[in-house]
Design a protein around this nucleic acid. Structure first.
Length: 724
RNA sequence: GGACGGUUAGCUCAGUUGGUUAGAGCGUCGCGUUGACAUCGCGGAGGCCACAGGUUCGAAUCCCGUACCGUCCACCA
């Protein structure tokens, strides 16, 4: 068989991937006597396509999976995608907006139909990218977070939590995005420092005198229900219990004392707007204050405020009020002030803290086993520095707002009867699931308490992370006791990005202990964040993204994988440059050509037994064989530590500089001259090449397999054989 | 307001428990090979290891501080 003069990735990749898949190499062979190596993919959002960070993440997973598979460990990598509620809904809303439509024009059912179409399109694109990358996933086990079985798992989890009293419905201050028109969790709010103003406003007292408060949000004064001062503030002591009057609208509010008020800030007196500020809300609870909502779900001033403000945008209202306060002589002064402002992580709109009736999960109890898991080392985070970050968050965990006012997602299995009864029903939810076109309130149902038929299903859906928290066991069949669940849970290794340590990793750990009584995985590797040359985050929306498909097309998949790992040091962030990928391409070609040389010179070499050849080995033969052995040992050691950069480096160094540059050059002469030592050289070349290809395979699967086809070896053996 | 990273050759980064002339890839300069590979080989130049102290026989490496860059967490208006 003639080998081309240069390695051309396009001649091999698709064909080789297909034959691996066709021959079932990605499916585990279950052997109950062996502990399997199991990886679940961090399911990519079906919002778009994979970026360079995903390419790195999935390369790392594939390296670990292939490495273990080659060692004869039963290995499973489960692929899948995430419906990504808010993100995907936004995408589809943007898409239909081009035709001048909103989701309300389509209606819930039709809109969801549009999202499913979007999902199908982008999921297939993403899966194509993963296959192009060489990901050796078991595609027969492909999962999606809104598959029917998965949805059943979500219902099961919700109902189970509810029955244990871990979920509750209540009016709390939540983060509201006026553009996405939904609540979002604390983790979905991004805080940015912004230059604003601190306004000092004079509130007259009922019995004469005045008190000045400082605020960054004058518009919320319309919803003030108190002024609070620190109980130890001498100058205000006499005012506690008295009443002040809100300027402009002339409403009376009490002055209360609360320790939460900072003595040193502003004037030491704070206006309290319980419905639009979390701290104010807490104070209002302690003092039984009224809670008046003055900003609505669109971010506009509510109707009840009357013609002067009703319907006005919250920021316009701010300007108007400042003007009015100034005219009325209530504005004492304003200072420029830098403070952090919360933005919606999805659309960057300024989040409005809003008093709202939502569903919450109480987290403290769930956090307990998740804390001890890290402390005891039952779960290991790599690099270890993440332990502290994880524990800090976990030990100060706050309740999680899980309901979303969206359409795309898992609808809450909750019904409300006119009699006030709240019905959480697994049966009903599953019935609705089987309805091919799920519609709110389609079925006639009877309230178990009052027998009324006037009941409606909660239109809200769950936070997308509620469902992905179940991923490691839900994709194996939970709550059914499937053979997969039995064989493959807990999983072994999770590779992911550090920015979802709380959103996803922490919650998987909590739900793993809650439902499986066991950690969902033993090792978590947080890979590097990939930045561009300017140090900016790689992002498609910023136009700084690099499509891994383009890289793979240009340089080849092996080169891309190699180049990414080459730049990745133990989770240290990296500035991505194509140079490393280019070097990967050179390396792939080097491997190809060295192999070509060896094969061209093995023609009259028969696989003589090692015993026969061993005594005839020269010093240089023994040296390179010893170095090979050392390289294998080092590679094992580095992979056990998830040190991919050094694993790749040590093989590269050995293969290129020791084997190619030095040994092959020496062997060349011996073979050409037909020396007595020719057979020994051929033996050594053969041995070093074969083992090197195996060593390289987890990192560069295509070029190694392509060469393997040309070697006189059993087909595909490379995918299941690690050198010793 | 807390916490965590980073600062080493022109660029991107290594540097294991402190120990002889600080490394790699790319780039650059010179030479060579064109029957494995020009996606090649050999050789060279290039670094007060951010700054200031300290510990030590010895510090890029440990400790303290400073500066700049980056990230995360946080209910002070």
């Amino acid at each position: 068989m003639e080998m081309a003069k240069a390695y051309n990735s396009k001649d091999h990749e698709d064909r080789i991937y297909q034959s691996w898949e066709r021959n079932g190499f990605f499916k585990p062979i279950i052997d109950s006597s062996k502990k399997p190596f199991v990886v679940v993919i961090p399911p990519p959002n079906v919002t778009g396509s994979l970026h360079i960070g995903h390419a790195l993440d999935n390369t790392i997973q594939d390296v670990m999976v292939r490495y273990n598979r080659m060692k004869g460990v039963p290995t499973l990598w489960v692929p899948g995608t995430d419906h990504a509620g808010i993100a995907t809904q936004n995408k589809v809303e943007q898409k239909i907006a081009k035709d001048g439509l909103t989701r309300h024009d389509l209606g819930r059912e039709e809109f969801i139909g549009e999202v499913w179409k979007w999902k199908d399109e982008y999921q297939s694109h993403i899966l194509g990218q993963l296959k192009k990358l060489g990901a050796s996933c078991d595609w027969s086990r492909l999962r999606f977070t809104m598959d029917e079985d998965y949805s059943r798992a979500v219902i099961e989890a919700f109902v189970s939590y509810y029955d244990k009293g871990l979920l509750y419905r209540g009016s709390r201050i939540i983060n509201w995005c006026p553009r996405c028109h939904t609540s979002i969790s604390d983790l979905e709010v991004e805080h940015d420092e912004e230059n604003g103003s601190l306004w000092f406003i004079k509130y007259p007292l009922v019995n004469g005198g005045e008190i000045t408060v400082a605020t960054t949000r004058p518009e919320t004064m319309l919803g003030d229900t108190a002024i609070a001062v620190n109980p130890n503030e001498v100058k205000y002591k006499a005012l506690v219990g008295k009443h002040a009057i809100i300027p402009i609208i002339n409403r009376e509010i009490p002055i209360v004392a609360d320790a939460a008020v900072d003595l040193g800030f502003g004037t030491g007196a704070v206006k309290i707007t319980p419905a639009h500020d979390p701290l104010d809300f807490e104070i209002s609870e302690r003092h039984n204050l009224e809670k008046i909502v003055v900003i609505d779900e669109d971010g506009r001033m509510v109707e009840s405020l009357g013609d002067q403000f009703a319907g006005m945008d919250r920021f316009e209202a701010r300007e108007v009020l400042i003007g009015l306060l100034e005219d009325g002589g209530y504005l004492v002064k304003s200072e420029s002030y830098t403070h952090s402002v919360g933005h919606c992580a999805r659309c960057q709109t300024i989040v409005e803290p809003l008093l709202s009736l939502q569903w919450f999960a109480s987290m403290e109890k769930l956090a307990k086993p998740a804390i001890s898991a890290i402390k005891s080392g039952e779960i290991n985070l790599h690099p270890m520095k993440w332990n502290k970050v994880y524990l800090d968050w976990m030990t100060n965990i706050r309740d999680w707002c899980i309901s979303r006012q969206l359409w795309w997602g898992h609808q809450l299995p909750v019904w409300y009867c006119e009699c006030g009864e709240i019905i959480v029903s697994k049966t009903w939810a599953i019935e609705d699931l089987n309805d091919l076109s799920p519609t709110v309130g389609r079925k006639q149902r009877k309230c178990p308490k009052c027998a009324s038929y006037n009941i409606t299903r909660d239109p809200d859906v769950l936070d997308t992370w509620f469902s992905s928290a179940l991923w490691p066991f839900a994709i194996l069949g939970w709550p059914k006791k499937t053979s997969d669940l039995e064989a493959f849970y807990p999983t072994s290794f999770l590779a992911t990005a550090r920015d979802i340590i709380f959103l996803w990793v922490a919650r998987m750990i909590m739900s793993g202990y809650e439902f499986m009584k066991e950690a969902p995985f033993t090792d978590v590797y947080f890979h590097a964040t990939v930045f561009n040359k300017e140090g900016k985050r790689m992002s498609k929306s910023l136009g700084t993204g690099v499509d891994p498909l383009e890289l793979m097309d240009k340089y080849g998949t092996d080169a891309t994988r190699f180049g990414l790992l080459w730049q990745t040091a133990q989770g240290q962030d990296l500035k991505f440059g194509e140079e490393a990928i280019l070097n990967g391409q050179r390396f792939a070609n080097k491997i190809w050509n060295a192999s070509r040389f060896v094969m061209m010179n093995l023609e009259d070499y028969k696989s003589v037994s090692h015993e026969t050849i061993s005594p005839s080995l020269l010093e240089e033969d023994k040296n390179i064989l010893a170095e090979l052995h050392q390289t294998i040992t080092q590679t094992d050691r580095y992979l056990e530590k998830y040190d991919f950069q050094h694993a790749v480096e040590v093989i590269y160094e050995f293969f290129w500089h020791s084997f190619c540059d030095k040994y092959i050059e020496i062997a060349k002469t011996r073979i050409r001259e037909g020396a007595d030592s020719k057979i020994a050289a051929q033996f050594t070349l053969d041995k070093v090449l074969v083992d090197s290809l195996k060593l390289l395979h987890p990192f560069m699967p295509f070029v190694t397999e392509a060469i393997w086809e040309n070697l006189d070896q059993e087909k595909f053996l490379i995918i299941s054989s690690w050198p010793k």
